[in-house]
């Protein structure tokens, strides 16, 4: 087994441009053996570019990319890597087992066909043509292709996007199993729930720069904001005068107040409005933290409304 902190993949001072657009700017990112690293970020943040670089699908303008100490653009350097990418269309006239067998043939020590089918929940459809599968089943085949080579390092680019709950949970369960077996997984996703459920470590990318890095608990505490909701006759401008308050918004006749110090704010609120009712205090979620990080670091898109689901 590898030692715990060994770096299996890295971007060192990597800048990548597509024409005029800078996708990544001087990014340093280390993937350590045995961890599940989630790469988060809004659309165009550079997540997929980071993954494409580590898979050798593109080369950086400057900086170094290394996977298991080698340049991933060489086919043989990818012998221990599996990848699940977003694909619009897969050749439809091959059967599920044929697709898997073809990808197994690329690897030195692949899983058996049977093991792969079981892991991806595809046993009952191994003889079906790919074109005859449903969306969720197709996604399972792509997952099967990523794991069939028995890889040490797995890249999953939005593996559960648009999936039904059953398939999503199946894939989560398999990802957990892979990590338990000591494999390393790099995951990009726009489901924060997925990050909370799976990831050891989170890297938040925005506009091609890493804006936050840490465990998901650390990311949350970086923006140690708590949320107070209440019905009050106080006006928004009144509440904003309380020094500890960092943000106020009005939501369906209730006030939403963000603060890092709940108690003094509450004391002040009750003092000013004894009739205050419907009080609710909640911890911020990873999603709040994520939005906060992205918003504060983003000048250009500051006016964007907060979305429920961030896109890739």
């Amino acid at each position: 087994m590898k030692e715990e902190k060994q770096i299996v993949a890295s971007l060192s001072g990597v800048t990548k441009k597509y024409g005029e657009i800078t996708a990544l700017r001087d990014v340093n990112l280390n993937v350590r053996a045995g961890e599940l690293l989630a790469v988060l970020g809004p659309n165009g943040a550079g997540k997929t570019t980071a993954v494409r670089l580590m898979l050798g699908l593109t080369k950086p303008l400057s900086g170094q990319v290394a996977v298991f100490g080698r340049d991933p653009r060489i086919a043989s350097a990818r012998g221990c890597i599996g990848a699940m990418l977003q694909v619009a269309k897969v050749p439809e006239t091959l059967k599920v087992k044929e697709h898997i067998n073809l990808f197994r043939s690329y690897y030195a020590n692949p899983l058996s066909l049977q093991t792969t089918l079981e892991a991806a929940g595809l046993e009952s459809m191994k003889d079906r043509l790919f074109g005859a599968l449903s969306g969720g089943q197709k996604q399972r085949v792509l997952f099967a292709l990523a794991i069939c080579g028995n890889p040490d390092l797995l890249f999953l680019d939005e593996p559960t996007v648009g999936l039904d709950i059953t398939t999503r949970h199946l894939i989560w369960q398999q990802i957990r199993r892979l990590v338990q077996e000591g494999r390393t997984v790099v995951l990009t996703t726009h489901y924060l729930e997925e990050v909370d459920a799976l990831a050891d470590r989170v890297v938040v990318l925005n506009h091609g720069v890493i804006v936050a890095e840490g465990t998901s608990a650390e990311i949350k505490s970086r923006t140690a904001q708590r949320k107070i909701r209440c019905a009050t006759r106080l006006r928004r401008s009144d509440i904003e005068t309380i020094p500890e308050v960092s943000g106020v918004s009005e939501q369906e006749s209730r006030m939403e107040i963000l603060t890092s110090q709940v108690e003094p704010v509450l004391r002040e609120l009750f003092l000013r409005d004894p009739s205050l009712a419907g009080l609710e205090v909640s911890n911020s979620t990873l999603e709040d933290a994520f939005l906060k990080i992205v918003e504060t670091k983003t000048v250009e898109t500051g006016s964007q409304p907060a979305q429920k689901e961030m896109t890739a």
Binding site: A75, G79, I81, G82, Y106, G149
Partner: peptide, 19 residues
């Protein structure tokens, strides 16, 4: 054109398949 345009070629290129 199809395999390139629909992203399938990327999946193959990300694997250890010799190009």
């Amino acid at each position: 054109a199809m395999e390139r345009g629909y992203g399938w070629l990327q999946v193959k290129r990300a694997s250890p398949m010799p190009p």
